[in-house]
Each structure stands twice: as structure tokens, then as C-alpha cells.
Design a protein around this nucleic acid. Structure first.
Lengths: 306, 306
DNA sequence: GCGTGCCATGCGAGCCTCGCATGCCATCGA
DNA sequence: TCGATGGCATGCGAGGCTCGCATGGCACGC
């Protein structure tokens, strides 16, 4: 019973069904001798006669009848495995695990997932949140198939080791500055950071170092960070109420709010951030993940135009 | 995915568990190259990479993770098949289908089944009833594994074709004649049929030909068959009430009734009937059936003594 | 009594799988 | 920086396995 060939089980099943080695052989496209021998081998492995040889064919013995449901279960299970692999390959099944940094889950990832699920309804998707370093660690650990991460566009030190990860560029994200509707610069399309020296900045944490401001503070520029707000929604609410201005990554804006103005910050002040889709290098990328990258690209293109 | 070797699935499972081809090979007693090649073959059959080769071992791809539960199910199912076959062989499982003629189910078969079930509690037993010809047909058709049948002891024409059935002699059944307790012959141990010329016979059907009397009527002997009763219990009740006498096969007597006498009929009048256990010739006899025959023999020996 | 249907088996060719040995690659430590 | 180590892949040859072909034995039916 060790080293069973699954074909032998299929042969066994067919012989049991036909009640004849010869006709089973015909049905399977084998020679009668081949089937006879395969049955004999299976019987030796089982340690018991599986068929009684009658003058007009064969019938299962009690041992054969005992084995038959198991053999059919095995054959069926293998067929199920084949089918599931085919589904995986054909993007009509399986699972893809995506992780993304929080801002990306505002608009970019949801839009990509929406079109992806429409295109491949059979593929399950799980979404995880986190900060870029944790996402990359999880990616390397195999916790996710695909990570949407951010990286500074600066050509210098790249936080993403190209030897460990394969990255797919999605978009270059610019930084916006949100000002109240009646702010003196509300009508402008772009602005420099230095123009907001007198404004109160609503930041995400108490220390300027932990906020977006840290990326490139002009020398001598020390913004007032009076108000701390935990998330983008709260920040926008505070800005709309006239309590100050706030730096907002463009991706965090789901749609243009009516009661405040968004100015694009000059690239000199805040270098654009890259948004990337990363996969683990050296690991086979699931077909679903590859497809999802395409949808992420399309979603990114749609967002950049807006 | 056709022609999968079940050993390859076991290998696949082990490699996935160890995360390393080399250590899996050690655990399986194979060479690293053999395991490497088996994995490669399985991957070719699956049409996809199942493992990503990392510098320090291997990890499942999404396809591999998809296949793994199926592989484990197959391996487990084969192990279950092995276990069930072993149980069948070891008489700790399985099923045996017995059929018997009605009289044998009064005492002989129940006693044999009782001791058999005590010896092999794991073996299921199904019991069917019928007349000997039908039992033999069912046996030949594979509806039963074992049939308890009766046959005349006459050495002449044997109703059981030895080419179609293997018979195991259980006992020679003698015929009893039941008489009321106050019958004039009640004190005798044996009797001749002719001594009952004046007695009313309680028979199983209206025509003498269909009763036990038919087996060998002395010339000129024409018993009175006034009363017809459907079964042995009713017959015995009628006899006990003094309404006549009745021929009873010894096997139909579960225990000696108190209110009537049982005389053994002379063998010249009613040749003893053989009770046999039959199996289909040319068919493998299940181990449980063979064991049950032994228990039938013991039960028969116990009944003959009584 | 012979033809037919069915299964088992000896024989030889081809293929497959194994172990051995080697090569390649990445990592780790001196 | 370079060798040691650990891990996987692969060329090679031996042995085993499975196949098809052909034959033989057996039981049944005309």
C-alpha cells in the first residue's frame, strides 16, 4: 500500500465499475495485460485480493469493496486539486492578500480592488493596514502577496531594498496644503511652505519631526503646531473651521471638500512621495497579485488625473 | 497532474512541513537529489511552481499552498484505507452478510452470532431470511457472504451444486414429533411414524406434500391433517392443548417445552436433514465469514448435545 | 467438440527513478 | 575580501518498473 500510483486507483475504479478487466482496459485506452498487471500490483500493495476472477469478468471482494470508496475519494480529491489549481491560474479562484499603508486605503486601493473584483469575482481579497516598514517585513515574511507602500522620491537612499523586493511604480504623490475657504491664499493653485509662516499647523503628532513637515523644513522655518489631530478627516474638519492649515497627502483626499481650499505644495518644499506596489523578490508572484497590480496602476492613473 | 505518485504527495507534504528539501529528504530517508527531483516532477505535473527556492530553504507558493490541503487529504485517505483494510483483515471491522433459512434463525444462527459478536465486536452483521434456493441464488449473486442452508442427507441428488458453492457441514438435524403430555407415547424417546396413524397431524399447510411429512411417507400411510397452523410456535401450542401431534425440526425447538413431549422420529421415516453453511465457490470468502463459520460449528455442536 | 470471451504471464523494449557526484548561488564569519 | 557552509539543481549510470505483444489456461455456449 506504499507507493500507490494514482493511475492505478483510477484503473481500479474503472475495473470495479465495468466488472471486467478487458472492457476497463478498452475504456482506459490500455492493453488488457497492463490493466491486469496494475490490478495485481494494487492487490499486492493492499495485501489482499481485490477482485474475484469469475469466468465472465471480475467482482469486488470484501476487501475490494472496502477499498473502493477510498480510491474514489482519492481520485476525486486529485481532480478537485487540479480544478482548484486551474481556477487559481485562470483567476477564477484563490485568494490574494494585500497590505497597504493607511493613506493608500483611502481611495487608491479601494478603487483598484473594486475594479479587480469586478474583473475576477472568484478571487478573494484580504486587506491589511500598516506602515511601510511593517508592510515590507510582512511581505518578506510571506504574510502578504502584495504591499502598497510609499517611498520618498529622492534618488538617494532608497528604503526599499531592490534585492529583497520587486517594486512597481504606481504614482508620484504630491503634497497638498489645506487652508480654510476664506484664507488669504485660498484662491491660489500652488504655494510655498514659507508663505505659511504665520499660520497655525494642524499636525498629526505633537512633535514636528513625526509629521509630514519633517520631510523638508526650510532652514529657519519653524511652523506653529498648536493643534494635534489624529487623522486626516479630523484635520480637514479643523481646517474648514478656520483653526489653521494642514498638510495633506493628495491620496488622502477622497473628493474635493467644498468648505476648504487645497493648494499643491511646491515640490521644492516637500519632495513628492512615490507610491509603489511591492512584491517579495525571488518569490513567485501569484497571478492574482500581478493582475491586481494592473488594476492599481489604472486606479493610480485615474487619481493622478483628478 | 496525471499519474501522480502518492509518495510524491507525501514528499511534497514533508518538504512543505520542513521548509527544506534537504531536511525533508533526511526525514524521509531519501537523498536530497531524489526529493528535489520529485518536487520538480510534481511541479511539472501541476503546471506551476509549488515552492519558491530561497537561499535558506523553500517556501510554498500560492499554488503550493493551494495544493497542500489536497495532498494531505489524499495521503490521509490512503492511510485510512490502509487502516480499514487492516481492520478487515484483523476482524476488528467490516461487515459480514449472513442469510439463513427460517428455522436456523430460531436458535442456531442467533447463538453463533452472539458468540461471534462477542469475539469480534467491531464486525457488523446483517442477517437475511429465506428459503434455501433463494439463499443460494443470493449467495451466487453476491448478496450475502454466507448462507446457512438445509439439504436432505440423502446421498442422491444434492440440491447444492458443489461447483457453485462451498459447503461446510454444521449438523445433521433430526426430526422430532411433538405429542401432548398425556399422549400414550409421551414417555418414549423415539417413535416410528406409523405409530401415529390414528393421530391428527397439525401441519404447516393444507396439503401434505408441502409439509415435512412429504419427505418420506411410508407406503399406505396417510396421516390425518385436520389442523393447519402457520408456524412452529402455534403448532406447539396446539399440540400442548391436545389437538394433535406435529412434526418439528429439532432446530425449531429453542428450549424443551414443559407441557408436551418431544420424541425423536426414527431416521427411517424422516431422513435427517443436513444444515450447512455455504459460501460462493470461486469467490474469496471474507475473513469474517470464515470466522463466523467456526462460530456456527460451535453453536451447532452445542445444539446437538442438547 | 470447437469457438469465444476473459484473465494471467513470459518476454523484451523503453522509460523512469534512484544515488552519486558535481556545480551554482547566497549567506556567514574570520 | 575570501573561504566555509548550507541549500538546491543536474549530468550520469545502474537498476527497476511498466508497457505492449504474444501465448496459454480456463469456463461457457453453440
Amino acid at each position: 500500500m506504499t507507493g500507490v500510483q494514482t493511475e492505478s486507483l483510477e484503473v481500479f475504479r474503472t475495473v470495479a465499475r465495468y466488472g471486467s478487466i478487458t472492457s476497463a482496459a478498452r475504456a482506459l485506452g490500455y492493453t488488457q495485460s497492463a490493466v491486469s498487471r496494475q490490478v495485481a500490483v494494487l492487490e499486492a500493495q493492499a495485501g489482499a485480493r481485490l477482485f474475484d476472477r469469475l469466468p465472465r469478468g471480475v467482482v469486488l471482494t470484501s476487501e475490494g469493496a472496502c477499498l473502493l470508496p477510498h480510491a474514489e475519494a482519492v481520485v476525486d480529491r486529485l481532480a478537485a486539486a487540479r480544478a482548484e489549481l486551474a481556477a487559481l491560474r485562470g483567476l477564477s479562484g484563490g485568494q490574494v492578500r494585500v497590505s497597504a499603508f493607511t493613506t493608500a486605503t483611502a481611495a487608491l486601493v479601494p478603487r483598484a480592488l473594486a475594479s479587480f473584483r469586478q474583473a475576477h469575482p472568484g478571487v478573494g481579497v484580504t486587506l491589511a493596514n500598516g506602515l511601510t516598514p511593517a508592510l515590507l517585513d510582512g511581505l518578506a515574511a510571506g504574510d502578504a502577496d502584495l504591499a502598497v507602500v510609499s517611498a520618498p522620491a529622492a534618488a538617494g537612499v532608497h528604503p526599499i531594498d531592490p534585492a529583497r523586493f520587486t517594486v512597481h511604480h504606481l504614482l508620484d504623490e504630491h503634497l497638498l496644503i489645506a487652508v480654510p475657504g476664506q484664507h488669504r491664499l485660498a484662491g491660489r493653485a500652488t504655494a510655498r511652505l514659507a508663505e505659511f509662516a504665520e499660520d497655525a499647523f494642524i499636525v498629526g503628532s505633537a512633535t514636528a519631526e513625526d509629521t509630514l513637515l519633517r520631510v523638508s523644513l526650510p532652514p529657519g522655518f519653524r511652523p506653529r503646531t498648536d493643534i494635534v489631530a489624529p487623522d486626516w478627516t479630523a484635520k480637514l474638519g479643523l481646517v474648514a473651521a478656520g483653526l489653521g492649515v494642514a498638510l495633506i497627502p493628495a491620496l488622502a483626499i477622497r473628493s474635493a471638500p467644498a468648505d476648504l481650499a487645497l493648494l499643491r505644495l511646491d515640490a521644492e518644499d516637500a519632495p513628492v512621495r512615490q507610491v509603489l506596489a511591492a512584491t517579495a523578490a525571488g518569490r513567485t508572484v501569484p497571478a492574482a497579485a500581478t493582475a491586481l497590480i494592473t488594476h492599481l496602476r489604472h486606479a493610480a492613473a485615474g487619481l493622478e488625473l483628478a
